[in-house]
Design a protein around this nucleic acid. Structure first.
Lengths: 235, 235
DNA sequence: TCATTGTGACTGACCAGTCAGTCACAATCA
DNA sequence: TGATTGTGACTGACTGGTCAGTCACAATGA
C-alpha cells in the first residue's frame, strides 16, 4: 500500500484469466488424474484464497485479519495472494463482489404469476434466510456494515449493486401488494427498508448475541410478515 | 491485544478516582483561572480522552485507530492514556460503557400516565433519534456491530446492559398496547426486535449510504409506527 | 521539599508487501 | 518416444514502516 517499489514496475501484472467471478469452490480436487490446465488451477487457487479470506475477514475484520493467515488457510504462500489481487483492499473488495452479487441476482427475480403477494414475500424472506442469514455470507453483510464507513468506494459498490436493486425489487413487490389490496399501509412502498430491517437485525443479532440468546429468526419473520399484511396470527 | 507483556506486570495500576462515568465533554477549559482540584482535572482528562477516543474509534474502527491520535486529539501525551486506562481494549470497553448506558437509562422510563401507547412509542422513537441516531453515539452502535464479534465480553456487556433492558422495556410498552386493544399483532410482544429494527437500519444506513441517498428517518419511523398500529396514513 | 502526575522518545513485536530463486509443467527437438 | 530447454506460477525470507505499551525524566502543586 505504502511500499515504494525499488524498480518502478509501473504496470502490475494481474492474472486471473477471463475475469472469473464465481464464488462457489470448485469440486475438483487438485489431485485429479486429469491434470488441470494452468488456467483452471489458477482459478481454483483464486477461489481458495477468496474462500479463506471470507473466513479470516469474517472472524477478525478487515484491519485485524492477517494475509499470512489467509494464505495458510488457502494452502498457499503469502506471495501467491499478490499474484491474484493487487493488495489487501482489492482482495476485500473482490470478496464482497463475488459473495453478494450472485445472491442478489438470485433474489431479484421477476414478480411472476398469479401468486398472492404474501407468498412472494415469504419466498423472498425464506430465500434470504437460506442463502444469506444462515451462511457465511451473513459475515460479509456484517463486514460491510462494520467496515463500510472506512471504504466509501466499497460502500458505494454495495449500495449500487446490492442495496439499490434489492430495495427496488422489494418496492415493486410491495406496490403490487398495495395495488391488489393485499397491503394496507402505503408507507411501505415509500420505505421498503421497513421490510428488510428485521432481516438485517437478525444478521447482526445472530452474529453478536446468537450464543447468548438465540433468535428464532423464522418465527420473527413470520410475525413481521403478519404485521405487513395486517393479520393477527400466522398460518 | 496480542501484545505479550515483557514484564509480567500482573496488577496494573489504574488511577482515575471515583469512576466518573459522564460522557459529555466538560465545558471548562484547561486555562480556567480557578485551578481545578487534582481529582477534578483528572476526571476532565479522562473525559477528554474518552471523547477523543469516540471520534477516533468511530472514524477508524478499533484495530485501525491509533492511540497517539487519540492522545493528540485529547490534548494529552500518549502515556497519559495509560494513567487512566489499562490498555487499548479497556479504553474501548469504557467508551462503550460510558456512552450507551446513560442513554439507556433515559430511554427506559416507566410507562406512566393515561397516554395512548402510540404516543409513548412516538416519544421512544423521537428520543432515540435525538439522543442516538443523530449524535456520535450512533457511531458507537455501529462500532459494536462491527467489533462485537471479536470482543465477546463487550458484546455480552452491551447485551446485558443495553439490549436486554431496552427490549424488555419495549416489550412492556407493546404488551400495554395489546392489552388496551391499541395493537393488534401479538407477535410484536414476542419479538420487540421488530419494533427497533428500523432504527438500527437507520443508524447503519446513515453511516454507510447517508451521503449517497439520505434517508428521511423521521418519515420512515412514522410509517413504521403506522404499520404497528395498523393505520393507513400519518397525522 | 517531595509525592504525584504527565510526558514523549524509545523498544520490540508485528505485518503488508517484495523479489530473487525454485520447480512443475509445457514446448520443442532428436 | 524420451531428453532438453523454456516459462512463469509459486514460494517464503526479508524489508521498511507502524504502533501498543514502557519508563526515565520533567513538571506540578501540596
Amino acid at each position: 500500500m505504502k511500499r515504494v517499489p525499488t524498480h518502478p514496475t509501473s504496470v502490475k501484472r494481474q492474472r486471473g484469466g477471463a475475469s472469473k467471478q464465481e464464488s462457489e469452490a470448485p469440486g475438483r480436487t487438485a489431485s485429479s488424474d486429469v491434470p488441470a490446465r494452468r488456467a483452471e488451477r489458477a482459478a481454483e487457487r483464486r477461489a481458495a484464497i477468496l474462500h479463506a479470506a471470507l473466513d479470516e475477514f469474517g472472524a477478525r475484520g478487515f484491519a485485524a485479519a492477517r494475509l499470512e493467515d489467509v494464505a495458510k488457510r488457502a494452502g498457499v504462500a503469502k506471495g501467491t495472494i499478490y499474484l491474484h489481487f493487487a493488495d489487501k483492499e482489492a482482495l476485500f473488495q473482490e470478496l464482497i463482489r463475488s459473495v453478494l452479487v450472485p445472491v442478489m441476482n438470485r433474489l431479484t427475480v421477476e414478480p411472476p404469476a398469479e401468486v398472492p403477494t404474501r407468498t412472494l414475500l415469504e419466498i423472498f424472506a425464506a430465500t434470504f434466510m437460506r442463502e444469506v442469514a444462515t451462511t457465511r455470507r451473513a459475515d460479509v453483510l456484517r463486514l460491510i456494515m462494520a467496515e463500510g464507513v472506512r471504504f466509501p468506494s466499497l460502500a458505494e459498490f454495495h449500495f449500487r449493486n446490492v442495496v439499490e436493486p434489492g430495495l427496488a425489487g422489494l418496492r415493486r413487490l410491495i406496490q403490487r401488494g398495495i395495488d391488489r389490496g393485499e397491503i394496507r399501509n402505503p408507507g411501505l412502498a415509500e420505505f421498503p427498508q421497513l421490510a428488510v430491517a428485521p432481516a438485517m437485525l437478525a444478521v447482526v443479532w445472530q452474529g453478536l448475541f446468537g450464543h447468548l440468546s438465540p433468535l428464532d429468526v423464522e418465527a420473527m419473520m413470520r410475525a413481521h410478515i403478519d404485521l405487513i399484511f395486517g393479520e393477527r396470527s400466522g398460518a
